[in-house]
Structures are given as structure tokens and as C-alpha cells.
């Protein structure tokens, strides 16, 4: 039964530890990324010329730089200007900013899909722009953006594996250590892959439940 060596307690505990680190990276990054996405997406649609330029510049840079390069800059680059981030904080920062750039495009599309009559009616009732976005267009756009934003969260779960490149040892990092200690690359990474598959499946299920719960007459996603 030598093939099952990696079910030995220390291997299992390393994987469990890595799994927790991954979850701790993914959950805040998904939340911050989504918040950034909503704010930037709203600015790109409703902001003045200055806010639009800032938002577009942000998306251009953070979607354009490879994520690994962004992580290297946050972790290895910032110390040159006297800012030291822990590997964990640098990873969450990098993931949130990158995810936010992608999310903002989904959110922007959703805001643009809200009919102009909705904003006209809100303005005619005396809504200020910010109240109009908060209470009229965002609740509608949010429902339309969910499928796209969910896709980005699934993607984030997988690119969180890049955190080990800046020494934040999460699931993939633990796997790499186990694999190089044992030379059991195939088995180890099959297990790691299966754990990611499990995480993305759970996320997809949760996102579907959320879509279902937010479903309203006129906003059906399922027939």
C-alpha cells in the first residue's frame, strides 16, 4: 500500500493546512475584488470624465500586467520604497486588484444593460446620481452581472495558486513541497487538482443559489 503514502497523517495535515490558507486568500480577495469591481464599473458608466479616465487606466493596467508580475511587484518591489507586506497581504492585495479589474468590466456591462428609462424615471423623481445608482440601477445591474462575476470568482479560486510564488504557502505550495519530497508528482497534483475542483464546484453551487434567491419576475435566469 505504498502508493497511499500521502494519506499519512503529516501529508494530510499539510494539505489541510494548505487548503485553509487557500480559503483565507480566496474569500477576502473575492469580496474586495467584487467591491472594487462595482465601484470601478459604476465610475466607468456614471462617473465624470476624470473618474472615467482613472477607472479605465486602472482596468488597463491591472488587466494588462500578468498576475505573477503584479504579485512580484507588491511583494518584492514595494520594499524598495520602504513598504513591507507579508506574503499573505501581498497576495490578497494582488488578487483583489486584479479580480476587481475583471469584475468591473462585467459590472460595467450590466450597468449599460439597464434601460435608460429607469434612470430617467429616477432622475425625474429627484434622485441624485449617487442615490440613483445605489437604489435603482445597482440592484438591477447586480442581478445581471452575477453570472459573469461568478465566472471571475471561479477563476480567482484557481489563480490563487500563484500565491506560493511569493512564498505564501497555500494548497499548491504545500503540494509542491510534498511532491518534491516524495517525487510523487502525479498523485500529489491529482489530489490537489481534485481539491480545487471541489472548491470551484462548491462556489458554483453557492453562486447558483444566490442567483436563484435574487430572481425576480422580469429578471429570470432560469425557465
Amino acid at each position: 500500500m505504498e502508493e497511499f503514502f500521502f494519506l499519512q497523517p503529516e501529508v494530510v495535515s499539510a494539505l489541510v493546512k494548505g487548503f485553509y490558507v487557500s480559503v483565507k486568500l480566496i474569500v477576502p480577495s473575492a469580496i474586495f475584488g467584487f467591491i472594487i469591481g462595482v465601484v470601478v464599473g459604476a465610475l466607468m458608466v456614471y462617473g465624470n470624465a476624470f473618474a472615467m479616465a482613472i477607472a479605465s487606466g486602472y482596468v488597463l493596467i491591472f488587466r494588462g500586467f500578468p498576475l505573477v508580475v503584479q504579485l512580484f511587484i507588491w511583494y518584492f518591489g514595494l520594499p524598495y520604497i520602504g513598504i513591507y507586506l507579508s506574503p499573505f497581504v501581498a497576495a490578497v492585495l494582488g488578487f483583489s486588484l486584479c479580480s476587481g479589474a475583471y469584475q468591473s468590466e462585467y459590472v460595467r456591462g450590466a450597468f449599460l444593460s439597464v434601460k435608460t428609462g429607469q434612470t430617467m424615471a429616477a432622475q425625474a423623481l429627484g434622485f441624485s446620481k449617487i442615490k440613483m445608482v445605489l437604489f435603482i440601477t445597482l440592484p438591477q445591474a447586480f442581478r445581471r452581472a452575477l453570472p459573469g462575476c461568478g465566472n471571475e470568482i471561479i477563476y480567482l479560486i484557481k489563480y490563487s495558486s500563484l500565491a506560493y510564488m511569493i512564498t505564501c504557502i497555500e494548497l499548491t505550495g504545500e503540494g509542491k513541497i510534498i511532491a518534491s519530497d516524495s517525487f510523487r508528482y502525479t498523485e500529489t497534483f491529482m489530489v490537489i487538482g481534485a481539491i480545487y475542483l471541489l472548491m470551484t464546484s462548491v462556489a458554483a453551487w453557492l453562486l447558483h443559489r444566490l442567483e436563484y434567491r435574487l430572481q425576480l419576475p422580469g429578471f429570470e435566469q432560469y425557465s
Binding site: 429607469q118 430617467m120 424615471a121 429627484g126
Partner: peptide
């Protein structure tokens, strides 16, 4: 303008009720 609009009710051809 926001205050003025509160005093001026507007009815649209295609209703424009808030869909959500």
C-alpha cells in the same frame, strides 16, 4: 434641480416603472 424635479411629476410613454 433635484428639488425642482420633486415638484414636477413626470409620466412616460413607456411607464418606466423600476423593474426590480
Amino acid at each position: 434641480i433635484y428639488e425642482y424635479r420633486q415638484k414636477v411629476g413626470m409620466i412616460f410613454q413607456d411607464f418606466n416603472l423600476f423593474d426590480h
